[in-house]
Simulated assay, not measured.
Amino acid sequence: MTPLVALVVLLAAVTHASWNAITHRIKDELGGLTLVGIGRAASGALLAAAAPLPAADVWPFLIASGVLHVGYQVALITSFRLGDFGQVYPIARGVSPTVVTLFAIFVLGERMGTAATVGMVLVTSSLVGLALWGVRGRSRHRPQWPAIAMAATTGLTIAAYTLVDGVGIRTAGAALGYIGWLMVLDGTAIPTYAALRLRGRLAARLRPIAAPGLLGGVLSVVSYGLVLWAQTRAPLAPVAVLRESSVIVGAAISVFLFKERFGGARIVAASVMMTGIALMLATT
């Protein structure tokens, strides 16, 4: 992974935590997902118009990923409703890189140097630490198991679409068209459902939350587009791990925006994560 690719992935991490925080603040779950979808579809259409149509062998990846992305959004919003942002976000993001790394190593045959491997272990360990802090911090008497289960489900969907897109975008050979059509497929699903369900009431429901919802959609395209580009330039595992530095941004957002407690455990986990990132970057 070159310094440029690492910088792009870190930028994707910041934008990802930001759009998740925006979505968390929108209390109308269906309305928020609808606006995010509209923002994604509009941004994706612009990208798709500027690139050639993907080849036939790419479309199974696009369709599968589109379905998984919809499942991810539903699971994410549900987990936000059940638990605190500082609890569910680290769990969701911590499950994904572990699954992706194991798949990339044992199925795809990706190999990394010793320093990069140690760095990945440190980053993943810090993610687990943040997740466990979230479980403890949410309730000192009884963990909120529905929130934990839904956050873990969210992480599994993240891992699934990351792997599908990692193979799909390499099959496509060109990132722009793949990203554009993926966002179109992903972005139109929930707005279509909302339009059928709410019919004439949809516009009135979306109007009060239009600005943050659409902004969240655009930021989500930027975030994942950067990750997909990085997957064409580096192995899947380190990209998947490095992008989850977004939990550090998410932890800061949970403290300063949502007034959740940070705690010493998060400071230790953040320090371990930064050490792991430094080791990964030292191998570039």
Rank of each mutant, 00 (worst) to 15 (best):
G225Q: 03
A269F: 11
G83C: 08
D165P: 08
S126W: 07
L228T: 00
W229L: 12
V5D: 00
V167Y: 12
V128K: 00
T154A: 08
S96N: 11
R111V: 14
G173S: 07
D28M: 06
P54V: 12
G134I: 06
F106S: 15
S246T: 10
S126V: 08
W181I: 03
Q87V: 14
S126F: 10
H24R: 15
I209M: 14
V123N: 01
E110V: 13
L30Q: 04
I209D: 09
A45N: 06
S96Y: 06
A159F: 07
R111Y: 08
F262C: 10
A159W: 01
V135N: 04
V255I: 14
G187N: 00
A115E: 14
S96E: 07
R170K: 15
A252Y: 09
F106I: 14
L46R: 01
A189D: 03
G213A: 12
M274D: 06
A50K: 07
L33W: 00
I63Y: 03
T275R: 05
A149M: 12
V99D: 09
L202D: 06
V222C: 10
G71L: 15
V107T: 13
L46P: 04
L226N: 00
A12I: 06
T171H: 02
V164K: 00
L127E: 02
A12G: 14
G155L: 04
S139Y: 10
F85G: 02
V95Y: 06
M1W: 10
G250H: 02
R261Y: 10
V247F: 10
L176T: 14
L257S: 10
A251H: 01
G134D: 07
W59C: 05
I38S: 04
G263T: 06
A159V: 08
W229N: 00
G264S: 14
W145E: 02
K259M: 13
P238D: 04
L185S: 03
A151T: 10
A56N: 06
G44E: 00
M1C: 11
Q73S: 12
P238L: 13
Q144H: 14
R199T: 11
G31H: 05
Y224W: 11
S65M: 03
G155I: 04
R111T: 14
H69P: 01
A49V: 08
P235H: 10
S43M: 12
G217C: 12
S271H: 03
R243S: 12
A75D: 00
L76D: 02
Q87A: 15
D57T: 11
G129V: 09
G155F: 05
L132G: 07
R205W: 07
A50Y: 09
R81A: 06
G119C: 12
L257K: 01
P212Y: 07
S79I: 07
S96A: 15
H24M: 10
L219A: 05
G109V: 11
A49E: 08
T117Y: 05
G66I: 08
A195G: 12
T153F: 12
A6I: 09
